[in-house]
């Protein structure tokens, strides 16, 4: 498995999740554990560029794949989060940012969302679209407005 561009290897039991492999075995603590159930998005990482929740994957399934965590992200949306105060406690933030990066790529590829009026069309990234597409990332501090503003700013 490549993590943030570096080859890694670890002997792990098959039950070890991708998230625990990163946090507890590889010392990559950027992805956060909020629910361990796929319900909060705090553990979101990019696997070969696609956003996934790392808590519901087993690390063994990701052998040979490219995993990017917040530590490996260098994206304008990070600065935009700070400018727009799209964070408070910071715990959901790595997941929000990885999710935003993945989401922008999905949108650029023309993928629709539940907010897309006509799924046959190529949707424009309205605030309603951003909100729907980011709804897998909970923020209990309620920094949603700032997050949406940050993403909209970067998306132009």
């Amino acid at each position: 498995m490549r993590v943030n561009g570096a080859e890694t290897s670890a002997e792990l039991e098959p039950r070890v999740s991708l998230l625990d492999a990163l946090r507890e075995h590889l010392g990559v603590t950027g992805p956060k554990k909020g629910c361990d159930q796929g319900a909060c998005g705090a553990c979101t990482v990019l696997v070969d560029g696609r956003r996934v929740v790392s808590c519901l994957g087993l690390a063994v399934q990701y052998d040979g794949r490219e995993v990017t965590t917040i530590e490996g992200v260098d994206h304008p949306v990070q600065r935009a989060f700070v400018r727009n105060d799209g964070l408070q406690c910071g715990y959901c933030t790595p997941g929000q940012i990885c999710s935003a990066v993945g989401m922008l790529a999905e949108h650029a590829a023309g993928e629709p969302s539940a907010a897309t009026e006509r799924v046959t069309s190529r949707p424009t990234l309205t605030e309603a679209e951003i909100r729907e597409r980011m709804s897998g990332n909970l923020c209990r501090c309620g920094a949603y407005n700032g997050i949406v503003a940050a993403i909209a700013e970067v998306a132009g």
Binding site: I70, V73, Q78, R79, F81, V82, L87, G90, P94, I97
Partner: peptide
């Protein structure tokens, strides 16, 4: 003012 810890929190 932007958060003093904004960079720490947005870079993991």
């Amino acid at each position: 003012v932007d958060r003093i810890d904004g960079t720490a929190k947005t870079t993991g």
